[in-house]
Structure formats: structure tokens, C-alpha cells
Write a protein that binds this DNA or RNA. Structure first.
Lengths: 347, 347
DNA sequence: TATTAGCACTCGAAACATACGAGTGCTAAC
DNA sequence: GTTAGCACTCGTATGTTTCGAGTGCTAATA
């Protein structure tokens, strides 16, 4: 796709912008009036024919106006992003140490997804911030009753996991304390990778007759780390896509809604976003999306990052005819805000 | 609505059954062949006219077959339930102490919702088992680092909550232990109602200079109990309702899907189910549903109960033309199974 | 008296026909 | 290079016709 003349560019932008607004194919006359180019519709028609040949726009059928192709949207979005990059974003909202309790964060993220969906009228997803390589911070054991040991495991990001372990006979308090000290000395600061067979052996030997209990607690630790590693995804506003009639038949809609309900697909999307080299906002138009079933939609994703390196994703999913400008702006502001919220507590 | 003759009853049953299958209005000729009554279509027509007058069936338009009204479905379902009640249910599956960790239970309930939705092709919801009056079982404090006290609170149902409290200066280990013992002596076995201002005063006096810390821990306790009291609702298969074209226009569908996304509405539904005197399965047909926005759907709910008295709800939401027979059967089996799974651990 | 056969009638759905108009591409003039 | 003008296209909206499933009613039948 060759370089476009400035005039063609302007026309293309106008077509996309107009189509975003109305959802109807846009005709030459409309553009003639819409832009400040002062060109007649006939001239526009000629240019449009060129743009069509270059693959940026297309006609749904002869004698209809033009609509943008994926490539057309792409040009529009790229330009948009360039402009946006120059702007400086501000942060406003103030919140308090929401990371303190994991379920608090959960509530907040759900809320963010909901508000975002409501404000944009698109479907939204958000993932909880996640560490690359999660380490154990702290571990504590205590007898709850005669039969149960409670293991509390704190990992990176102050995520706290509990594990209840059933034992045949009660352990004395100081035994539990000893075990706790032993395990902490080995495990503090360790990631899953660090906990190898050798370390386990050594611990077991030192634990003596409690090797068995230790083993089961270790399982708890592994599970705690794993579950901290499990990506939490929250979605909202899936039904918003029903508002865009161009999605077409029920059949297609159904597939899309199912895709939104399917965490696996969203997971892929988050992976893709996090792994891509691009930082910040990414826009996937139609077939560009890295996942199946979203060919008829566009996805705009953003990455936010905690100071300690934990990353999360926000995504907005809507029709190709999406108000990219607004969405990109909103996401930029939001990521900044999230960074702020999460990092506040850590300072 | 007067008592129906046996023949009318049979015809009504046949109409409903047939309509459930096909989703099309059913005509007199169909019934004439469908039943073993050996009646001509003309006779059926007469009976149908009566049934229509009595309000059990209706015509979508002149010269169409009949479809059941809510009342018609009701007769069908009531009869169905009578039959079902006589049957004995069996339990099959075996699982292990899944209540041990709350998030395990979460995973399981989500899974149940998903499987149920997949198998029935309707939308499903399930709430986690909940205690009526939650009591504190156990409370534990420990210094995580110089600035943070970790409070672990275990409440009824082995639900474990953590609370991280920031303190200006570190407390010595034995101070923490003392505080822990003090609070446990007051709080063990206490429900929110028991923790009154007097008790708090007494505790504070005994806590001396740590009254402030104690106060903040108490907040954590309250939150823990409250969050254990918060009903968790999981849904799945909302998109299934798109499969039933009789729901009609996008507009209506949209409202329904939004209702399913709206936890408040589902909460009401769960409340209604749990509070009703009826035990076991309940069927709400169309307007009978205790919540708004579900006039065009039917809801079948079931209550399951843990030995300790915690109760949860399962709901299946689908078109009025639902395969009630299958749904009721499935739910019965499932509640028995859930009772089994949850209670196993407690024995 | 209850049942049934027969028939005229209704009305929605599907198939077909027509009209309208937005928008195009092309040509010729500016 | 730009524009005015015009014939042409084709999807949508609207109107018309046909078809048939199903009804209600009446009169004949068991």
C-alpha cells in the first residue's frame, strides 16, 4: 500500500470519521460538504475510486457509499495515535491503598470494568496486575484446632493465601513455631523455580518427624503461588455489542458474546498484549486481533504497570466502527490512574 | 380457574409438551394424532376452545394453533412435580473436601454453572452456600514486617479472611500474642450481633495502649464477617438465550442479557428462593418470577443445604418453553450431589 | 348427547412486482 | 485538474398476490 497524497489522506480520514459517527456508508457528496477541501463531489468520487483501488475503502454494494476496510481504519488509528502521543495526560482521582487486601482489588477492578463499559458503551475486560516471577514473602503456621494447621502464605503483591491442613494428631505450639521458622528460612524470597528437590530434601531432613506435614504445607505454598499466578479477568458490558446493528445476525452476535464469556480467549488477548513489544495502547482492527471469533470487532488494549513490575491489561471490545479517539483517550487516562492508585500504597 | 376434566387435562398436557418440543403453536390435528385419546381434530378443537376460555392456552393470532399461557405451563409443571416427588434420587459423584479452601469452592461452583449451562442449553446461576448468622471461629495476629500486622480471621464455613494493618511502630512478638489471646477470648463464637459497644469497651480497656490497634483489627473482623456474608453469584451460559428465537427482538434480548449480568437482580432471585416456604425445586413461569425483566422467561431454582445450615441456590433461566422435566430432574440430582460434596468434608 | 365430517373463512408468511432514490462512473466542458 | 451533468445500478421500502395451516360453525352420525 503506497504512500497516500495529503489530499487522499484527508479524504480517507473524513470517510472514516463520518462512518464512525453514522454507521452508514458515506457518499462523495457528504465528504464534499464535510471537509474544508472545497472540492466537488465529482472530484471526491475520483479520489475515492483511487482509495478503493488501494484497498482502504470499499463499497458494500454498487451504488452505495464507501466504508473503511481494516486497512482504512488502520491508517486512521495510526494517525490518531501519533497525535495523541504528543499530549500530556493528567491524573485526577485519589484513592487509598487498595492493594492491601486482594478482594478489595477485585471489587475495584470489577467496578472499573463496569464504569468503563457504561461510559464507552462497549464491552470491557480488565485483568488484575500480575507479577512475572512470583516470590514467597512470608509464611506462617498455626494450629486452628486439634486437627487443623492453618498455613498463611503471603506472596508478591501482598496476595495472601490460606491453606488448611488436616493432621492426625495435634502438634505442640513450639513445634509449629519451629516448623514455621524452618520453612521461612528456606522459602522467603523464593520463587517456584527456586524450590527444587534438593531444597525440599534438606527441609524434610531438618523437619524430622514432621516431614510429612511439611510436605503438605509445601503443596499449599505451590498452590498459593500458582493461584497468585492465575490471571483474574473481569468483564463487563458484553451486552453493549447488541447495540451495534452492523454486527448482523443473531448467529454472529452469539459467537461474539460467547467469546466474551470465554476466559480462554480473553486470556490469549491479554497474553498477546503483555508480550507484544509495543508499550501502551494497542489497537487491533478486525482480523488483526490475535484471537479467533473477533474478526468483526475491534479491540483496543492498554497495559498498566506497577512499580514492582506487575502488569495488567485493560481491553475495550467494540464494533470496528468504534470511537477510537475517545477510547484511546479514556484508556490512556485510565492506565495512568491505575498506576497511580496501585503505586500510591507502595511508596 | 375451575377444575379441568381429565380429558381436558390430557389435551392441555399434550399441547404444552408439543409446544416445548417444537416452539410452534400447535393445532388441533396435531393433538388428534399425538395423543392416545383417539379423538378427531374437531373434538379437540372444541376442547381447545374451552381451554382457551379458561385461560390455559391462547392463540398468537386467529388461524394459528394454540400456545400455553403462564397458567397453562403452571398446570403442566405442577403435575410434573407431583410425579417427580415420588421418585428417589441417587447420588454418584465423589469428590474430596472442597470446602477446605474458599477459592477451591469458587472454582468448583463456577465449573458447576458452566457444565450445567452447557448441558441444559439454558443460562445458569449458582450462589455459594451461606450461613444465616456467621460467627467468628478463630483469629490470629502476627507481625509481617516492621510496619504491618497480619490478622487472619476464620469464620463459619472455614472461610478465611486476611487483613493487613499498618502500624507506626513494631509491636514485640509477645505483645502481639497477648493481643491475639485477648481478642480470641472475646470474639470466638461471636456473631456480628454479639460484638456490642460494651464488649468493645472492655476489650479496649484490657488492651491498654494497643486499644487503637485493636480497634482497627476489629474493623477487619467486621469486614471479614461481612464479606463472608456477601453472596457470591456465578453465572454461565447467558448467551444460550439467544438460541431461542421466540424471545423476539434484539431489544428484549438485550434487556434479558443485562438482567443476567446484573447481580442485583440475581440476588433478589436467590433471596426469594431461600426465603420462600417451599423447599426444594421452585418454578417461576413468566410473570411469576419475583424480579423485573424476566417476564418472558422462566426460572427454575433449587436450594441446597449444608449440614451446618448454610444454604445456596442454583437457578436455571430459560425461555418459557423450557424442558421443565429435564431441568427439574437435573436440579434435583445436582442438589443432592452438592449436599454430598459439601457435607463429606464435615463428617 | 357426544362425536365427527365438511366447509367457508381468516390471516400470517412467503413470493413476487414495482417504485424510489442515493450514489456511482463516465464524458464533456471549463 | 476540476466540475457539471446524466445515465445507470441496486438495495430498500412498499404494495400485491398466493398459499396453506388452522379455525369455528353447522349439520350429519352413532
Amino acid at each position: 500500500m503506497e504512500q497516500l497524497s495529503e489530499r487522499k489522506m484527508k479524504i480517507l480520514q473524513a470517510i472514516v470519521a463520518n462512518y464512525l459517527e453514522t454507521g452508514e456508508p458515506v457518499g462523495s457528496r457528504t465528504i464534499s460538504k464535510y471537509t474544508d477541501l472545497n472540492l466537488s463531489s465529482a472530484t471526491i468520487r475520483n479520489e475515492m475510486a483511487d482509495l478503493e483501488e488501494s484497498g482502504y475503502i470499499e463499497q458494500p454494494h454498487t451504488s452505495a457509499g464507501r466504508i473503511p476496510t481494516d486497512a482504512g481504519y488502520r491508517v486512521y488509528v495510526d494517525q490518531l495515535m501519533q497525535e495523541r502521543d504528543n499530549e500530556v495526560e493528567e491524573m485526577r482521582q485519589e484513592r487509598e491503598g487498595l492493594l492491601e487486601r486482594v478482594d478489595r482489588m477485585e471489587v475495584m477492578l470489577k467496578q472499573v470494568a463496569k464504569v468503563l463499559a457504561y461510559n464507552t458503551n462497549y464491552a470491557t475486560m480488565i485483568t488484575a496486575p500480575q507479577f512475572q516471577d512470583i516470590r514467597v514473602k512470608f509464611l506462617q503456621l498455626s494450629m486452628v484446632d486439634e486437627e487443623h494447621i492453618l498455613a498463611v502464605i503471603v506472596v508478591d503483591g501482598n496476595i495472601i493465601k490460606n491453606q488448611l491442613i488436616t493432621v492426625e494428631e495435634p502438634l505442640a505450639n513450639d513445634e509449629v513455631l519451629k516448623l514455621s521458622i524452618l520453612m521461612n528460612s528456606f522459602l522467603q524470597g523464593a520463587s517456584l523455580r527456586d524450590i527444587n528437590i534438593e531444597m525440599i530434601q534438606t527441609m524434610k531432613v531438618q523437619a524430622g518427624i514432621y516431614a510429612d506435614v511439611l510436605d503438605r504445607i509445601l503443596n499449599g505454598v505451590v498452590e498459593a503461588v500458582k493461584s497468585a499466578d492465575e490471571r483474574q479477568i473481569y468483564t463487563s458490558g458484553a451486552t453493549n455489542i447488541l447495540k451495534y446493528p452492523e454486527i448482523g445476525d443473531i448467529e454472529k452476535t452469539s459467537v461474539l458474546l460467547e467469546a466474551l464469556e470465554d476466559k480462554n480467549i480473553l486470556n490469549q488477548l491479554a497474553d498477546e498484549t503483555l508480550n507484544s513489544n509495543e508499550k501502551g495502547i494497542q489497537v487491533y482492527i478486525g482480523g488483526e486481533a490475535p484471537v479467533q471469533n473477533m474478526q468483526d470487532l475491534s479491540v483496543v488494549t492498554a497495559t498498566y504497570e506497577l512499580q514492582e513490575g506487575a502488569k495488567g491489561t485493560i481491553g475495550i471490545i467494540g464494533p470496528k466502527r468504534m470511537d477510537y479517539k475517545k477510547v484511546v483517550k479514556t484508556l490512556k487516562e485510565l492506565t495512568v490512574e491505575l498506576d497511580e492508585i496501585f503505586n500510591k500504597k507502595e511508596k
